[in-house]
Design a protein around this nucleic acid. Structure first.
Lengths: 197, 197
DNA sequence: ACTGTAGGCCAACGCGCGTTGACATCGACG
DNA sequence: CGTCGATGTCAACGCGCGTTGGCCTACAGT
C-alpha cells in the first residue's frame, strides 16, 4: 500500500484549477445552477476534462466539498470561553474559505450535500462538543443547537445576505452569538427556567 | 375600481390545485429541481395550464411563495415573554405550512427568492421587533440576530434534517431557543459582558 | 529518432426542461 | 339551437445540460 512514488504529474495543476473553480461556482450558484461547462470555462479547460478527472458532476462536488472545520480541542479551552471561542472560530473559517458556503447552498437542494453536512456536524462538531466537558448524554443535542445558530448565521450572512447581519462586523457578531453558544453548551437540562442575560 | 362582481370562475379550483402542488414541490425540491411538469402532474392538468395561469415558472413561484408570518403584536406581549412567544409562534407556523420551507430552500439558489426572504424579514419581522419596545436605533440589528437563530432552526430541522434538531419536540426547542431570542431583543448594546444563563 | 501514453480539444449524443401555438370541449347566453 | 369565450389537451420548439468517444499533441523511455 505504499502506492506510486508520489511523482508530480503534469495534470496536477489542471486538477487544482478545476477544484478551485468548482468551489467558487458551487458557492456562488448552488449545486443545480453551477454547470460543469461554467466550471471548465473558469478553469480554462474543456468540460470533458472535468469528467475525466472527477467522473461526474456528483464526483466533482464530492471532491469540492471536502471540508474540515479545523475545530480546536475544546478540552483545552477555559469553560467560560467556549461560546465566544467557537463563534470566532467559525466566523474566521468562513470568511477565509467559501467551501462551507458552497456546501450550505448545495445542501438545500442536493440530498448528497445535505448528507455530507450532517456528517460534518456529527463527525466534527458533535465530537468537539463531547470533548468540551458536556454531559455525554446531552452532548449531541447541544451540538445540534449550536449548529442551528452557527448555520443560521452563515445562512443569513452569506447566502440570503440579510442586510443587518451582513453589516455587523465579526467582532460584534461574536459578542452576540458567543453567549448563545455558551448557553447551549453549558445550561443544565432541561433549560426550563428562562435565562436571558 | 370596484372590479368584477367577484363571480367564482370554474378555473378557481384548478388554480388552487396548481398552487398547492407548487408549494409542495418547491418545498420538497427547491426552485431549480421543482419542474413545471411535475407540478402539473401533481395537479393532474397539463403543463401549459400552469403557463396560462401564472405566466412562467418565476410567476408561479412568486404566487406560491406569498407568505405572511402572522406575527402577533409584540407591544401586547409581556416583555419577559417575548422570546418564548416568538419561538413558539414560528415553530407552530412552520409545522402547519410548508411555504416558508419552500422559500428557504429556494432562497439558497434563486436570487428572487432570497430577495423575497429579505423583504419578509424587513417588512414583517423587523416591524414587529420595532413594536416590541426595542430601541429604534438597534431594532433592525436585533431583528437580524433573531432571524439568524430562527432561520437556522428551520434550516437544520426542516431542510438539512440534522438528527438531534429533528428529534427535539417543539416544546423543548422553544425552551432552548426562546431565551436566545429574548436576549437578542432585550440585551443592552453592546453585549460585551458575556451573559450565559 | 521512434514510440507509447498521458494530457487535452472538439463535435456530437440524448434528455428534460420551459415555453408556445394550434386544436378540442364545455357551458353560458342570445 | 348556435355562438363564443373560457377551459383544457396535444405535439412540438429550441435550448442548455451532463456525458461520450474520437482525434490531435507533446513529452518520457528506449
Amino acid at each position: 500500500m505504499t502506492g506510486p512514488p508520489a511523482r508530480a504529474r503534469r495534470s496536477d495543476a489542471t486538477r487544482a484549477a478545476i477544484l478551485r473553480a468548482a468551489r467558487e461556482r458551487f458557492a456562488a450558484d448552488g449545486y443545480d445552477r453551477a454547470t460543469i461547462r461554467a466550471v471548465a470555462a473558469d478553469a480554462q479547460i474543456d468540460p470533458s476534462m472535468v469528467m475525466r478527472y472527477y467522473g461526474s458532476k456528483e464526483g466533482l462536488f464530492a471532491a469540492a466539498a471536502e471540508f474540515d472545520l479545523h475545530l480546536p480541542d475544546l478540552a483545552q479551552v477555559p469553560a467560560e470561553q467556549l461560546g465566544e471561542t467557537l463563534a470566532r472560530h467559525f466566523l474566521r473559517r468562513w470568511e477565509a474559505d467559501g467551501t462551507l458556503v458552497a456546501l450550505l447552498r448545495a445542501a438545500s437542494t442536493n440530498p448528497g450535500a445535505a448528507e455530507r453536512m450532517r456528517g460534518i456536524f456529527a463527525g466534527q462538531l458533535a465530537t468537539a462538543v463531547a470533548r468540551s466537558g458536556a454531559d455525554p448524554a446531552t452532548a449531541a443535542r447541544r451540538a445540534g443547537l449550536v449548529a442551528s445558530q452557527i448555520l443560521g448565521l452563515a445562512l443569513t450572512r452569506y447566502v440570503i445576505r440579510l442586510p443587518p447581519v451582513v453589516e455587523l462586523d465579526p467582532d460584534e457578531l461574536a459578542e452576540w452569538v458567543g453567549p448563545t453558544i455558551q448557553r447551549y453548551l453549558t445550561q443544565p437540562f432541561p433549560p426550563s427556567q428562562a435565562s436571558a442575560g
